[in-house]
Amino acid sequence: MLQKLGVEVLSVSTDSQFVHKMWNESELSKMVEGGIPFPMVADGAGHLGRAYGVYDENGGVNIRGRFLIDPDGIIQAMEVLTPPVGRKFEETVRQVQAFQHVRATKGAEAMPAGWEPGKKTLKVGPDLVGKVWEVWNPRDR
């Protein structure tokens, strides 16, 4: 799904690339046909995790953090969770679609809460100030 949207995925953990290889071969390739299609990055010393604020110094691991980076190299979205809760992939996809839509309109349109592809966007400008209630109802979410 992310590939269809033209998004390149990189996964990062403090495991070595050798462990990534074995995990892919012995387990993940049995859950994902053909194995993991994206690069699995090794961050043994936690330099990457520290730079992104997700390195847990006590545990020596990177906690779950997801960063959406646009074609200009700017971080547009981030989500960081403590270890026991996993992410929801559909929400990631929705955010990619929303940010790609914003970029396609060069910022002329904004995505209200709960926006999904096909739903109403907001045309940003002086005329919209104080008038959001006329064009968008929270129940539309």
């Binding site: 033209g6 998004v7 990062v12 953990s13 953090g65 997801r66 959406l68 980076i69 646009d70 990619v96």
Partner: peptide
């Protein structure tokens, strides 16, 4: 390109 950078434990 758009990049999704995902850290995990």
């Amino acid at each position: 390109k758009w990049v999704m950078l995902c850290f995990y434990p």
